[in-house]
Design a binder for these strands. Structure first.
Lengths: 214, 214
DNA sequence: CTATTGGGTAAGTGAACGCTTACTTAGAGG
DNA sequence: CCTCTAAGTAAGCGTTCACTTACCCAATAG
């Protein structure tokens, strides 16, 4: 597995390493740790490796994070904070057609997933290693979409515009369909170029799904 | 993470451990290693742990497998051999409606996924740790479904019975939808009881998807 | 200039890791 | 009953792990 990490070894012209402020260093460590944990999983990631990628010694990491476990949790926490699904959903216009809503949600999931290569790997790695904080990543990144679409579907069913499907199962299926595209692409390079250009995926799958609800 | 492994410490009435033949022991090690690797990932699983769960010493594992890496690969290989997707697809009647075909494929994926708690965890763990053999698990467990459904869809499109969707993208979406159900359930206990009784999922989602293709 | 603070390191610690060696003993075949 | 093969073990090898201690020195304030 080749990988190009930010080395963090910011070098000034005399060759000496630049000192970062505590905040800067902390942020850098979290970012680097995210990529390493995502690549190797919790057990596979080594503190030495993260420190080296940051361009500092292990001892410095322990000035900021008391243990590997805490570092992992804070890495997850940073991802959760950055996901910010809710504000996307809140700013969706409410005069969209059903197909437009599903399309926008799909596009958002695909774009964030592709733009942040770490997100899904980290979510999966954390889930597999069974740390309790996993739940919060799931709740922050996946659940809001499901709850949002589920409400939309329920309204459609109530108004008689949609077949009487189960709103939650339906929303979960759609979100799963889209998320699986990202995972397939990132883990197995499945879907090749298709996923990197989300339009084709959306044009093909969203109408199918939405038409099936009518 | 609590776990109940087969201890393999088959004890006869006098309390002495029973000796297994080489074949029996080998099979037992592979089975136990499968559960441990699935739970902990490659790096997280320890040879000592696997040996203990087998009720033998580490040295014995090395009589059968020259290294941890080979043990992991053979564990994956055993899963691949057991998956046997192709023979299921080959024995599907060819007078089924589109909805019946999709329904049967979905049921198969759900039942195997739920029946074998290791399968998807192992697939994900292997994929995250980036071992090359991952590809073979993906190719054996996921790809056959996609190729099969993709052919079915392509035929439907050609006969003008279906909208002119991209067969591969469509098949991949459906398989992803179903696989994601299993993963969601096993990693986050999402979908709660729903997935353990696949009928509700199939009744709700398959008709939606298939109707959308018409 | 000097004092002080805080970013940063060198050199470890004991424990646990993957793996090996030298040995023991259960139990089927004669 | 004895023999001999192969299942199985005890003990430890060198290495790497997460983490610690004791120290250094760049940069800022006075």
């Amino acid at each position: 597995m080749t990988r190009s990490l930010p080395t963090g070894a910011d070098v000034s012209r005399n060759g000496a390493k630049k000192r970062l402020s505590a905040d800067e260093r902390r942020a850098q460590i979290l970012e680097v740790a995210g990529t390493v944990f995502a690549e190797e999983g919790f057990a596979g990631a080594k503190i030495r490796q993260i420190a080296k990628a940051c361009g500092v010694t292990e001892a410095l990491l322990y000035k900021f994070f008391p243990s590997k476990e805490v570092l992992f949790q804070e890495t997850l926490g940073a991802k959760v904070a950055a996901a910010d699904v809710q504000s996307f959903l809140d700013t969706l216009p409410n005069d969209l057609t059903l197909e437009e809503v599903f399309g926008r949600v799909a596009r958002r999931i695909l774009e964030v997933g592709i733009g942040d290569e770490i997100l899904h790997r980290l979510l999966l790695a954390a889930s597999l290693s069974g740390v309790p904080e996993t739940r919060s990543l799931y709740v922050t990144w996946r659940l809001p979409y499901i709850e949002f679409l589920s409400r939309i579907v329920a309204e459609g069913v109530e108004r008689g515009e949609l077949r009487s499907v189960d709103p939650v199962l339906t929303a979960r299926a759609f979100v799963g369909l889209v998320m699986d595209c990202v995972i397939s692409c990132q883990l197995w390079n499945d879907a090749g170029e298709a996923v990197r250009e989300p339009d084709a995926l959306i044009r093909n799958n969203v109408p199918t799904f939405v038409r099936g609800l009518l």
